[in-house]
Amino acid sequence: MSDNDFRLKGSVVTTVLLEVKSPNLEQIELGLKEKIAQVPQFFNQAPLIIDISQCSLSLAQFQGLISLCRELGLAVIGWRAADDAIPAWRQDCQLPLLPNANSRQINIKSETPAPAKDPHVVIKTVVEEREVSQPTKMITKPVRSGQQIYSSGDLVVLSQVSAGAEVLAEGNIHIYGALRGRALAGVKGDTSARIFCKNMEAELVAIAGNFMLSDALQKIIWKDAAQVLLVDETLEIASL
């Protein structure tokens, strides 16, 4: 039972997206060379995704494009095609087909032909910020005085949190027992985080750094089910 050997995590990598607009490889090569010459360091072994959603290519053309990119020092890591026009050779190209970034850009095909000076190649740097969900930490036993529990996601405690104990989470905190210690949700600044507990007897509750002590809590909800949320930088204690 050791998790020390490896860890699986989500990660966001900045990649270069090559949107192909015509199957003309010679033109693409010329255009690419020109772009690379401007900032060669940037393109050296840059991870590249080939997007053929705006132009259909044959397998031979596509493979030609891949080898062209590799010759130019780009690291092709995958490709994309329009969801409704995935080519039949998708299994044969030895490269992963990546999902399209959701609703990033709507291309309305113009009726007029593109002006001749339009480059055939558009190079864009796309930073994909996908929210990678952190795992929920589950505690089944009482959190005793002096203990501290931290979760990088949500925290679920199926028992009580004793006086003198502290539970912290970057996300929400759910306590299916009495909360007699301290609970701090959204510790990395998530103002939408909340604290839920079956029995509010906390020493302190805090969301994204805004805290309230037991004296104040006793005047609102005490020894009853409650949730704590942040509304306009003010803590609100509501019954559940």
């Binding site: 009482p142 959190v143 005793r144 005085s145 002096g146 004793s162 006086a163 003198g164």
Partner: peptide
């Protein structure tokens, strides 16, 4: 409270 602490230990 001290008993609670010792239970944690």
């Amino acid at each position: 409270r001290d008993s609670d602490r010792i239970l944690g230990i």
